[in-house]
Amino acid sequence: MDAPLISVEDLRKDYRMGGHVVHALAGVSVDIAEGEFTAVMGPSGSGKSTFMNVIGCLDRPTAGRYVLAGQDVGRLGVDQLAALRNKRIGFVFQSFHLLPRATALANVEMPMIYGGVKRSLRHEKAMRALGRVGLSERCHHRPNQLSGGQQQRVAIARALVNDPSLILADEPTGALDSRTSLEIMALFQELNRAGMTVVMVTHEPDVAQFARRVLRFRDGKLIEDRAQAPADPAAMLAAHDGELRAA
């Protein structure tokens, strides 16, 4: 593989809190290649969220370089960052962040409105994305008519719909029960096997075990970067159901 999808060099982010300066990121350098499934770990205040915000082009670093798919993000203006988020990045949030009054289909279509995709094509692509997460039949349901797992699937379909280079998931299972969490992780692994780059922020080792690479942050610094053999959620699901039957 040639140039990495994400290339970060000496990334720094300072916050001014009261009188003193907090170094949320204190010089982080890392490359993430296309097709990787990376978990970003660390306790709260470790800088992992700030890292994700910068990677997601939601926040600008105080210093350092960030190149996403060959593009130097530091030089981009507000509108160009918005376009980059729209085309390159799909966000998945802990609390789903679906529009409550819109149907699943309308929620998935929403990012394409800002990408200038034509109406007819939008519908088609949204249906395809919902198909990928297994929710074709529920496309006309509103979020409050869907279970938590289904809502998160809609959110994942929304993240996928613009064919991004990267899915950024922030604690994607934080609001889900353990069984649904396994299903969602199986879905991420499936998307990853199909070639999607996934970066997932979590503080739970149980969730991080499904990634193939783990980055661990502490005090704004990257303290660990290791590859691992991912756990298989399908097997664990079977085991989980077996336990339930036994009990």
Partner: peptide, 16 residues
């Protein structure tokens, strides 16, 4: 506010 945040995240420009 949350909706606005989401829209900005998925690529709405401030002017949108």
């Amino acid at each position: 506010t949350r909706e606005i945040g989401l829209r900005l995240a998925v690529g709405a420009r401030p002017r949108d």
